[in-house]
Design a protein around this nucleic acid. Structure first.
Lengths: 193, 193
DNA sequence: GTTGGATAGTTAGGAACCTAATCATTCTAC
DNA sequence: GTAGAATGATTAGGTTCCTAACTATCCAAC
């Protein structure tokens, strides 16, 4: 939210009035929020140019199988769970995506409570058109960092986000219960709720 | 947006279909967005418990002089500029803050186009009540990081966010045009638009 | 001194999120 | 087999943001 962050000196000033304020924590926290927001907004600008929003894009990416490159149908509840939003939000996103002809709804033949959301050919080609630019855009944003710095950044971010340890995930990719590698299911966040 | 990030292996898989995809950039980017979102949402939850939202809180903090601890009036345009949102958004936020008796609007005596937003005594004490918890909450979120790690994190985040260099800011605190240290005016982002 | 352009704030309408309530279908237990 | 709980999706209504259009005031130039 803050466009310009307070200088470190100003934070130190504020500590006089508020002894609870941990200056280095405050600085790290504000910079994290700002950098995250910056990166998010840049992507948003790019997506907007292609009649996309982060929410719409996420839904479409979830319908797009990264491994096979083929569209795979999913239920709204699946999409909500994977995207980390409510089912009501998915309903709204699918509404506009369907309106634009990028996805279709279909009743599940087995359980008629469920819907199956499909990427249409139009949706698939829209994605093909957007993805290269999106990837370039991500690469450009991270370009200032060396490979080593990226690794460090990921490690520190995971510490903050409450991910136990980045290391063990790659090592023993447990997956005790089968299925669903598509979006990866590493480290279920504490944000369960 | 994504609750669970793809595993690194899955990203590597995806590179086969999309040569533009820079795996380490993608991983760093996704982790940045997720960690930022996590931190943001945690703060949001805390603020919500006190009848606040990030937007409302930011406006009130801008009206609260961190140095003197005294409320200082500001125009909506000022607030919008410092908060990095549109003036229309500030109008909406001030509407609800005024409704709740936390701020008041007053016509500028000199230029009757302008309004001056004041923190009311009620608003001031609401802030006093929230701030200690907010600070503790920030400290708790950053607790997993050592002082050294915090410095590193800030340096890497600034690289990504396009801040030229964190060092020189503290060193020669230029401030060529006078005034307004309240919210700090370091490093105007590229996001000017 | 009046016209025209800039500036400050608001209004109107839309998108993406939320919670809570509703409707339809399925499953479970008796 | 039927009542009631559980589950999937939607609807209704609210919030926070946006852009674009509007209103009011000020200032500058003729």
């Amino acid at each position: 939210m803050l466009k310009d962050l307070p200088r470190y000196e100003c934070i130190l000033e504020a500590v006089r009035l508020h002894p609870d304020l941990d200056p280095s924590a405050c600085e790290a926290y504000l910079n994290l929020l700002r950098a995250g927001d910056e990166a998010y907004r840049r992507s948003e600008v790019f997506l907007n140019e292609h009649n996309m929003s982060p929410g719409r894009f996420t839904v479409m990416m979830l319908l797009y199988d990264k491994i096979g490159g083929k569209p795979v149908p999913q239920t709204p509840a699946d999409l909500a769970e994977k995207a980390g939003v409510t089912r009501a939000t998915v309903t709204g996103l699918v509404d506009t995506l369907e309106r634009d002809g990028l996805v279709t709804r279909e009743h599940d033949s087995g359980d008629r409570r469920m819907m199956l959301i499909h990427l249409t050919p139009k949706g698939h080609s829209a994605l093909q058109e957007i993805l290269p630019g999106h990837f370039k855009q991500m690469a450009a944003q991270m370009a200032p960092l060396s490979e080593h710095e990226r690794t460090t950044l990921v490690r520190l971010l995971n510490k903050v986000a409450g991910i136990p340890s980045a290391a063990h995930i790659v090592v023993h990719s447990a997956a005790p219960e089968g299925a669903a590698h598509a979006a990866g299911d590493i480290a279920a966040p504490i944000t369960s709720k």
